[in-house]
Simulated assay, not measured.
Amino acid sequence: MPPDDPSTIDGDIWVRPRYLAGSTAIGDPALDPLLNLGWTLEHDDLANVYLSAPDRTIRLGYLPEGEDDGLWRINAYKDPFATPTWGVCFNDSCPTEVVTAFTTALATAYQQGPHAYLAAPDPSNTDQDPIHALSPLIKRGWTLNRPRGGVLALQAPDRLASCELTMKDLDPEDELTSRTARWHLWAGASIDAYAWYATASSDTPVGLVTAITACVSDPAPLPRWSQETHSYVQGLAQLTPARPPNPPAPTPLDVRRAARPTTLPARSIPRWSTTTPRPAAPGPRH
């Protein structure tokens, strides 16, 4: 729910549904959960940022100057010198809160140990079944389309966001370098006219993917600055003021009224004084 104090939010409008809010263009909130664990921070001459877990089993790249629109790339490794065990990507327009939900879950899993952040999906375990990651969407009214070509697809009630889970075999390299991944989530009018997208490869732990779907489907709006919202937000999202409007500037008449005395002179105000002697009460009758 929105905070009670408007001064505590970073924005002047609420955007609903939240998956149309777009990025805040500030990466710090999503980096903080991992930095707080003491992960190593590096950057290059282009202002790209790289985080590494102390044991080098997880690496994150925040790549505003990368080769494509994949702004956030997170890979995990069983062997620091081997190919990634799993990879997740968020493009440059993905709401920052969605990325933060993922990195927060990743920080928790990393503290629990490799069994949590390197655990591949397991259909025999309810919590580790890939379909479990879709449960937040289903509980919040997303509808399941008829499966086609081995793909389960869910759509938001307004049909402006979708999530696909591919059940067939996929090429591991394609999953790490393209949008052809086990989980594919996007917002927009269609898969080609997307506002943003996120992908997760086959062996991404189900709990981490669930953090993404839970955040995306959360009914609470997100704060944004109206002058920084994208055109698709203005046309498709519900925008409401997040701060009370500024009071209008006073008119000359308002100024004159304010200068008038608000009380009459003291001598014109009749009042009883508690110190004024009162006439004596009449004595008893005879």
Rank of each mutant, 00 (worst) to 15 (best):
G113M: 07
L170C: 07
Q128A: 14
A119F: 03
D169P: 01
L137I: 06
N125M: 07
R148P: 00
P123V: 11
A82Y: 06
T104K: 04
D129I: 04
S124D: 14
T100D: 02
S162P: 00
T166H: 12
A153D: 04
C163R: 01
A161K: 02
D129V: 04
P157V: 10
L176C: 07
T103V: 04
D158M: 05
H132W: 05
L154H: 03
S162F: 15
A133R: 04
C163L: 15
Q155C: 05
C89T: 15
P123G: 07
P147N: 09
Q112P: 00
D129S: 10
G113S: 09
V99E: 01
T126A: 15
P136V: 06
A119D: 10
A82I: 02
T100N: 06
P114H: 09
P123F: 04
V151R: 11
H132Q: 14
K168C: 01
N145G: 13
A82R: 05
F90D: 01
R140S: 07
D171Q: 06
N145K: 10
D127G: 07
V98R: 00
P136Q: 06
G141W: 08
L106D: 01
D158P: 07
L160R: 13
E173D: 12
S124P: 00
P80E: 06
T100K: 11
Q128M: 10
S124N: 12
E164P: 00
P157Y: 09
N145P: 00
P123D: 07
L118A: 08
Q111Y: 00
T126E: 15
D127F: 06
